[in-house]
Amino acid sequence: MTQLPQREPVLRTFPMPKDLNAAGDVFGGWIMAHVDIAGAIPAARRARGRIVTVAVNSLVFREPMFNSDLVSFYAQVTKEGTTSMTVEVEVYAERDPANPKIVKVTEATLIYVAIDGSGKKRPLPPL
């Protein structure tokens, strides 16, 4: 039985009917956009300022997502360079309130870069 991670999600939401694809499942593009938002939260905190997404190294859809799912996004910085950070994102769906079930639906690895006010790379600040 899958369980939610023992930390706070960075983002939690319900997909809405407008977020469905032609088959009635949540559109993959909606999930991708929210994965990027979730990954940007710890990246911006670590950078203490502006960041940009420079790569999505992997994005795996493990299970379909439905419009009745409560979706939780967990993200953390797992690697740092001089200006860049690798962020791992895991996405879980809580479904069927009458018979609760948690499913890991997506996982992704993204890279963000800290930038200054003019859009140029800048070093990450010391911890």
Rank of each mutant, 00 (worst) to 15 (best):
M16C: 09
K18R: 14
D19G: 13
D19E: 06
A22S: 09
F27M: 10
G28F: 08
G29E: 11
M32L: 15
A33L: 01
H34D: 03
I37T: 03
A38L: 00
I41E: 04
I41S: 03
I41T: 11
A43R: 02
A43H: 02
G49E: 02
I51E: 01
I51S: 00
T53D: 08
A55V: 01
N57Y: 03
N57L: 09
L59M: 14
L59Y: 03
V60C: 11
V60F: 07
R62W: 06
E63D: 12
P64D: 02
P64L: 04
M65I: 12
S68K: 07
D69G: 05
L70E: 14
V71C: 04
F73S: 04
A75G: 10
Q76C: 14
V77S: 05
V77F: 03
K79I: 01
G81M: 06
T83S: 13
T83F: 02
S84G: 05
V87C: 08
V91F: 09
V91E: 13
Y92H: 10
E94S: 04
E94C: 00
R95M: 09
P97Q: 10
P97E: 02
K101R: 12
I102M: 01
V103D: 10
V105G: 09
V105M: 08
T109D: 08
T109H: 06
I111F: 00
V113I: 11
A114W: 07
I115K: 11
S118T: 13
K120C: 03
R122C: 11
P123E: 05
L124S: 01
P125M: 08
P125D: 09
P126W: 05
